[in-house]
Amino acid sequence: MSWAAHEFELYFIQKHVGAKASFLAVVVGTQLPDAFTKTFVYAADDPAAFHRGWPGVGFSHSLLFGVLFAAVVLAITKSRAWALGLLIGQWAHVLTDFADTAGVMLFFPFSTEPVTISMWKHAAVEGRYGDAAAYYSSLGGVWDFFWLLVTVVFAWRTLTPAYFREVVVPADPRVWGWLHRTFRLPERGLLLLYQGLMFYGVGRMISWFLYARFDAQTPFQPQWGGPAYIEGNDISDSGWVEVLVRTGIGAALFVAFMWLCWRAFGRRLWERGYDVPAAVRGPGLHAIFDLPSSQRRKASADATVSGG
């Protein structure tokens, strides 16, 4: 599993999706696979198999899980920005986690074969603290640092107040506006909330790294498949040809299933959804804050009628 990388990649994704998806939805999507399962993973008899396998909660780390969740949210809220954000966030989590030894069942239920590049060991068997120490003693910690660098070098602009005002809030005026009104948070407070995830990523990365070095005193072994002091915990003993064939079949079935779903109801669901109209977005945060929710809903309805 990845740790702080899940926070850093949020801003890298934000840079690429711009105003097409809600940042808050990407956050929820990124946390979705672990949100309801992580507590139980550390208590399981075989944490790796429970976390990523089947039977277990490994389906939460599949591409289909993200699609289903996004489709349900689109059907209920009709918000394309939220559906897209959830999907991108969940897929980003899944694709980040395939680097550890447990891997992810990408094409579940069409293939239950975990896909992995075994860069570092899935160490949940050590408990939460032991897991953290193992992760920050392996290439996992390097992976986090790599994502931090990528975010700071290529997506630093997404952390600026101007970007927050002009892109992030206008992409999701309803929820940011709700946070503003409900918790009486001015722009400064909302900005800090937005930047808080990056801050948390940096903070937890350094804290756990220091814990591994000075408290747990685990050896730093950033080599492929490390750390060596943890027992191997692959949840599949299939050879690479077998994995390739099963995953290939799973991928083909997944694509076919997605195409059928799109034809059957997906397209209609998407067309029923709405994008935040430019009229409501206004010139950034200022317009959103001054707009009562009743007016905003009316503006959305007007835009839908005139558009349709």
Partner: peptide, 16 residues
């Protein structure tokens, strides 16, 4: 602080 509730809110707490 090293949990997903308090961690992201720390910045808001300390600076606002």
């Amino acid at each position: 602080l090293l949990n997903w509730v308090m961690g992201p809110l720390f910045l808001l707490l300390t600076l606002y």
